[in-house]
């Protein structure tokens, strides 16, 4: 048994501490130690994007990051997207309204990638959306409705004054 270390970090707005082994990936610690199974494993080598999370606001594959690298940093997973009162993030609502998921296994990763995109480019073009989502594989939808959902959120938010932005964290 390898020696365990205490990992402390901010997860979805809360300070968390967890024991983990040095070889454990962030994905393993999220899923197996913290039981946050919303972050999915599709390939474990950074090819599919199902495990995407935002680390200090930057989009990363949690399967390619050692958990201990997250020491003292801030993490957002799919479980932190909606408000605590249950109000869905606009991207979550748009995915539902546009039927942008079929089986749903890739959806958490897409939501995080789309959030990273809109944080950086509030009004992206279609090709910008496709570029930012190219690290996320979806085998069900052909991406059409996903791209439309993201473009729809961007246009809706652009039409609103910034104060009503519902983006938490």
């Amino acid at each position: 048994m390898r020696k365990k270390s205490v990992l402390e970090f901010t997860l979805n707005g809360e300070t968390r501490a967890v024991l983990c082994e040095p070889q454990q990936t962030l994905l393993e610690v999220l899923r197996d130690e913290l039981r946050l199974t919303g972050t999915k494993e599709g390939c474990s080598n950074g090819n599919c994007g199902a495990c995407n999370v935002l680390l200090d606001g930057v989009l990363v594959n949690s399967c390619l990051i050692l958990a201990l690298e997250v020491q003292g940093r801030t993490l957002l997973t799919v479980e932190g997207l909606a408000r605590s009162d249950g109000t869905l993030h606009p991207l979550q609502q748009a995915f539902l309204d546009h039927a942008a998921l079929q089986c749903g296994i890739c959806t958490p990763g897409f939501l995080l990638s789309a959030k990273a995109l809109l944080d950086e480019h509030p009004l992206p073009t279609e090709s910008q959306v496709r570029f930012w989502l190219a690290g996320n594989l979806c085998r069900c939808t052909g991406y059409d409705k996903i791209v439309r959902a993201v473009l729809d959120v961007a246009r809706t938010q652009a039409a609103q004054p910034p104060s009503v932005s519902a983006t938490p964290v």
């Binding site: 899923r31 039981r35 946050l36 199974t37 919303g38 972050t39 999915k40 494993e41 997973t77 799919v78 479980e79 997207l81 909606a82 869905l88 979550q92 995915f95 539902l96 309204d97 039927a99 998921l101 749903g104 296994i105 959806t107 958490p108 939501l111």
Partner: peptide, 23 residues
């Protein structure tokens, strides 16, 4: 018509449990 699917909220919030999520 085009209503939202009944399992939709579970699947966009990460609550839906897939094969590997069981413990």
């Amino acid at each position: 018509t085009r209503p939202v699917r009944p399992d939709g909220v579970d699947k966009v919030t990460g609550r839906a449990l897939y094969g590997a999520d069981l413990s």
